[in-house]
Design a protein around this nucleic acid. Sequence first.
RNA 1: GGAGGAGUGGCAGAGCGGUUGAAUGCACCGGUCUUGAAAACCGGCGAGGGUUAACGCCCUCCGCGAGUUCGAAUCUCGCCUCCUCCGCCA
Length: 429
Amino acid sequence: MLDVKALRADAQAVAAQLQKKHFELDVSAFEALEARRKSVQVSSEQLQASKKKASKQIGQLVGQGMSVDEAKAKVADELKDIDAELESASTELADIQAQLDAMLSGIPNVPHEQVPEGKDEDDNEEVLLWGEPKQFDFAVLDHVDLGGRRDELDFERAAKLTGSRFSVMRGDIARLNRALIEFMLNQHCDEHGYEMINVPYIVNNDTLYGTGQLPKFAEDLFKLHGDSEYYLIPTAEVPVTNLFRDEIIDPNQLPLKFTSHTPCFRSEAGSYGRDTRGMIRQHQFEKVEMVQIVKPEDSWQALEDLTQHAENILQALELPYRKVRLCGGDLGFSAHMTYDLEVWLPSQNTYREISSCSNCGDFQARRMQMRTRDENGKPQLVHTLNGSGLAVGRTLLAVLENYQNADGSVTVPEALRPYMGGKEVILAK
RNA sequence: GGAGGAGUGGCAGAGCGGUUGAAUGCACCGGUCUUGAAAACCGGCGAGGGUUAACGCCCUCCGCGAGUUCGAAUCUCGCCUCCUCCGCCA
């Protein structure tokens, strides 16, 4: 949520910033609504004040010994029309407020000035290329073929169990999956200073509102049937960032740095036909997430650090990758600025997203009313950041494809061998 | 699932339906005293919102939501959460 005060002060300026994000802010609609809000709110509060005053007067008179009926009669004039007026004013105000909230909660975060212009991923700005894609002297297989040789990666049976966009992992691949998770968590905890945290995979409305998935992106989520409005999490960012919602965090506790391994559930509405083969785009995938809650002045550096932490994983696994700064059109709803990391996939001969690291500024914090105190002790919104470190399924397939051998086996990256019982090669026939 | 009990400010803990945003204590901040510290004493100390150039003034908030009333922390109803006991269970 943007600061409504900034919009009141200069809606045009905000609209100009949002254009980079290809969001059209209806300035005149906002200003018209805001003008009504102001007049109705002022009169509604005035009416409340006079009603309160009259009630207090009755209290005083009764306290002085007057009978209740007499006291009421004495202030009857003042109370005469208030109820009806107040009723209509507060109904109108609630209506306007609801419209304003609906408008406001649908406006995305403004992009940082460093965010490049552009409409989609083709316009993202490359900031780093790391590693050299390996030259293969044989025809490379993709992860589906590699994993399918011994049924260790099984999409057909997953489809039987559930449907499309699910997978079954078995044997060494299942173990590789676990190895990646452990390796990533250990790196973040032992080398990068994160605290591990385990959170619910099912969350409520308020939590999804806090990070910005609701109300606008409900169709991307899996909603549970039942009496409660519950959803499966689309990312650990949602429960972890919301941990301290509605709290004022002691500044001495900041920064908070959490890492969490969870499954993620996404409906992938609107991506029919895209990435249908393999485990690139699944309804359920695992991710190791990093979340930071920091003082406002620290978030800029924190984004660099957090992104580096994700890069460290790729570097330790010796996977070639590319780092891009997302352009305005590709930036997410809540993000102020985002770096994507894209890993090299030999089978596609291109780089594909494996991590997304964002600074959300105070955008989520304002929705969550998550605050700390400034040097004067005044409440102040915190800044929130999140990033994948990394998407486990995509890392797994990147490992399979980049480490494949001519015979269809896969060499285990050295960093993972301790987690694989020392095994150096898997999927050998 | 059944039966009870409880939700008040950072914490503890008062609060007859009436000038209560809320006693008191602790914690915290400032001051006096002290060579310094502690103790003692004095003062300050919730959040959100509106309005204003500003000082200030006003509204809302005692788990959440409705209701009764001129007036609700206090009464009524529904919901949520927590605790205790019983049952069931990984």
